[in-house]
Design a protein around this nucleic acid. Structure first.
Lengths: 337, 337
DNA sequence: GAGCATACTGGAAACGATTCCACTTTTGTT
DNA sequence: AACAAAAGTGGAATCGTTTCCAGTATGCTC
């Protein structure tokens, strides 16, 4: 296999210097006579020359041309759609996206960040899984914009945050259920270490306190975002001496596992158990009964994230925290107990 | 912001030459005295030095350390799970994945391929959307392994293919329906340009011919994989003077749109219309009635793809075409007409 | 047609790593 | 104690670009 053509090959084929070829490749970087340009372009075409990114990036230190997107789990439809939108937004700005998945594994996350660091990407958008403070700090230190989306980490100074107002959304869900007359409300949340998990349980608890509903810690379950444990959590809740009459679930994977379990047990929704989900998969509407959901404005999340990730990097800039509005969509899976 | 440390900074901090630092960074590349190594490592730690990928790649010509994954649509759960598995497989081999999405847009696909070419990745796994023969050819020309997964392209010499046997799976679906007594079977397939679309309709037609069922081209609809057009297709089919009593649908996005439309029209499944889907989303089981599906062995697809993509590159090697077995899972959405 | 400002071109120095090869030091053998 | 082999180290070339700067050709003005 012949070594692929370099700028030098093109230069000699076109009978010019490599400097000229470089100017042809990057229009606007200097004058080139039209006739010369044509000759160079012909040579490029003929040799199928493509400049090597590696060499290019090596020379131009801070290439804001690539953006890292570190997702916890593409298998989660919410993240998948977020990725889709981020790619779309980035593309409209002529930026490429390096998409990495951590599968909710702190180790993989650390690896992903190491890659991004050594690639010197222009910005990073991430749904952090674990507290890898060193890795995040390293990114900041390179003056890379760091944007946490959906979830966030407290101990990463300088990182921007984009998410829905989780406290508020959890409040809405719980208020809705309390208004319907529920007094024992199960809450399947993300891990306690996750910012979303904490914010949502906080909102939930606040409403219960305001409404004078008795709190029972046994009703709040912290379950990994990924995997099948949502089912076990539901099982445990319904096995309580005083089982809940309503349930709030944190994401699609969990609700799928939970619904599967409910069907197995013959628990009727909403007759025996009302259900609210933090997510917006098209299937939630098709499910019988249609699920009451909290719909996150994915396009907005993506737009703001990309914006911040690509902003002029000024280490001094105040980190911003953007909260977008989620929509509460009551449907058929919630009713009076 | 201070320029980040280079190998030279580390070398002078540790009082050694850059050659030694390089050997420390890549263990096994040459001898280093233990004491020296410690000194270098300390300097690395202290300066937070991280080698730049760009420089590294520039030197080592054929770095088989990165693999490109070009997906048509991460929003499609099938592809999302494929991505998840590919990342997993690649990681177990110490390889990183550059995930790019084309959103079923030939333009975006071409861009993605251009990136991959200029990055000189070791291998590419793709679900091709369009015939971009030049781009694919360029990859082959660089002696990059090209693996098509799920779908394939005919006019790309040298590319490997990994997919299920689409003819066979479509046969199973149609046979199942014919056995149940259906004579008019609607078929919502991918675009005619897609290999899967063609293979599946071929299998479908073969069974009809064998069983002496009258064929009607109006019953076969070619619909984009992405978007909402599955709904319109269903509407059109049911508006036929002689509407079908059964329906085969090509993927999740299409079936979601289709089911939404059916619900709107009040068409009962399977009483009025039996439904089979080429896909395996957990929701298909939760849907009422549980959908009869064709389950693709995603883990196998991923394993084979990564294997081929990372294989020793020998341009001479015969391109392989691997067909893995899909599983037909009859559930409640199909019954006698 | 002289003088000057531009347009165009090419030589050479980076960028930050890896790697070959020659050189020095240590170790082991007899 | 002498010598060979092995271990350790550093100088310098190289990978494929971009970019600075100096040099040459061209066009314009008077």
């Amino acid at each position: 296999m012949a070594r692929s053509a370099t700028i030098r090959d093109v230069a000699s084929a076109a009978g010019v210097s490599i400097a000229v070829v470089s100017r042809v490749i990057n229009p606007g970087s200097g004058p080139v006579r039209a006739e010369t340009r044509d000759r160079v372009l012909a040579a490029i075409e003929q040799l199928a020359y493509r400049p090597r990114t590696a060499a290019r990036e090596l020379k131009q230190a801070g290439a804001a041309t690539t953006l890292g997107l570190v997702l916890a789990d593409v298998t989660n439809p919410f993240f998948a759609r977020l990725a889709d939108r981020v790619v779309w937004e980035a593309r409209s700005r002529g930026v490429q996206v390096l998409l990495m998945t951590t599968q909710e594994d702190p180790h993989l996350e650390e690896e992903a960040l190491a890659t991004l660091v050594s690639r010197r990407v222009g910005g990073v958008i991430a749904t952090p899984t674990a507290t890898n403070p060193d890795s995040w700090a390293r990114l900041r230190q390179l003056d890379t914009n760091v944007v946490f989306v959906d979830r966030s980490l407290d101990d990463v100074p300088g990182a921007h945050t984009v998410s829905i107002d989780n406290v508020r959304s959890a409040r809405q869900a719980t208020e809705h259920l309390v208004d319907l007359g529920h007094r024992r409300i199960g809450f399947i949340s993300g891990p306690e270490t996750s910012s979303t998990g904490r914010a949502r349980t906080a909102g939930h608890r606040a409403v219960l306190a305001e409404r004078g509903v008795e709190q029972d810690d046994a009703l709040v379950r912290h379950v990994p975002f990924r995997g099948e444990q949502g089912g076990d959590a539901v099982g445990a809740l319904l096995a309580l001496p005083e089982p809940p009459t309503a349930l709030v679930v944190a994401n699609t994977a969990q609700v799928v596992a939970a619904l599967r379990r409910l069907r197995l047990r013959g628990t009727a929704v909403p007759a025996d158990l009302s259900v609210v989900v933090f997510d917006d998969d098209p299937w939630t509407e098709l499910f019988e009964p249609a699920l009451t959901i909290i719909r996150q404005p994915i396009a907005m999340l993506a737009a703001h994230s990309v914006e911040l990730a690509l902003a002029e990097r000024a280490s001094a800039a105040e980190p911003r925290s953007i909260a977008v509005e989620a929509e509460f969509v009551p449907r058929a899976s919630t009713s009076a107990p």
